[in-house]
Design a protein around this nucleic acid. Sequence first.
DNA 1: ACTGATATGTAGAAGAACAAGGTATGGACC
DNA 2: GGTCCATACCTTGTTCTTCTACATATCAGT
Lengths: 114, 114
Amino acid sequence: MDLKRSDLLQGTLDLLILKTIEHRPLHGYAMAQRILETSREVLAVQQGSLYPALHRLERKGFIQAEWREAESKRMAKFYSLTPSGRTQLAEEMDQWQRYARAIQWVLQAEGAAS
Amino acid sequence: MDLKRSDLLQGTLDLLILKTIEHRPLHGYAMAQRILETSREVLAVQQGSLYPALHRLERKGFIQAEWREAESKRMAKFYSLTPSGRTQLAEEMDQWQRYARAIQWVLQAEGAAS
DNA sequence: ACTGATATGTAGAAGAACAAGGTATGGACC
DNA sequence: GGTCCATACCTTGTTCTTCTACATATCAGT
């Protein structure tokens, strides 16, 4: 019952979103599917996390939206990276590598001297 | 001004603490130093994060405290892993590896088909 | 007597993610 | 025509973690 209730590492959602639309615009629903796929079913982004995050990123100017017709023939909001979003993506990738490496170091540290 | 104000990846602090006392008891202050060292100055655990985390972990039964004299000749609270804490550590290490790998997969995913 | 490193702690605020709910459209099937 | 499901968007309220900033005390050295 005291199980982890978090599907995501807090702080990585923005990075995942930005990365997912790096090469082409996508709508929210498709992003979640794509992240689930590329993470091999590990990272399940909830809609209640996704949409607020998209609005946050848009407000900060990192992504911009445009209504277009999706493959399904339904209207959907396609988000694409802005130039500032591209910069942000690069920074967040750096940060992630930095933290992940640092944590790895701690996990591999020797038991220490007596 | 919109800089990341987080020194840590949310959700990893417990893991770092548990790992740091895996082989010998330590007091809080020393844990923070040790994490800073082993992470090569990357992970700076704030005192306002550390002590509440220790109390949380103790309340959950993962660690236990004992007052002892530190090298400095001052009294300090030494925390050690309980059996249940050892199990928890193993689980959190698994989780971390799982997530880190998954995120790496997303970051390395191909730009996708047309 | 003062300073700096050691050592523990709390209060308040911010922020992210989650659970759970709601709305609506298009296609397929009966 | 009616029903169902996958698609697609969104919000509200809650929980949890961490941060900033502060408060306190001891010990060693000057």
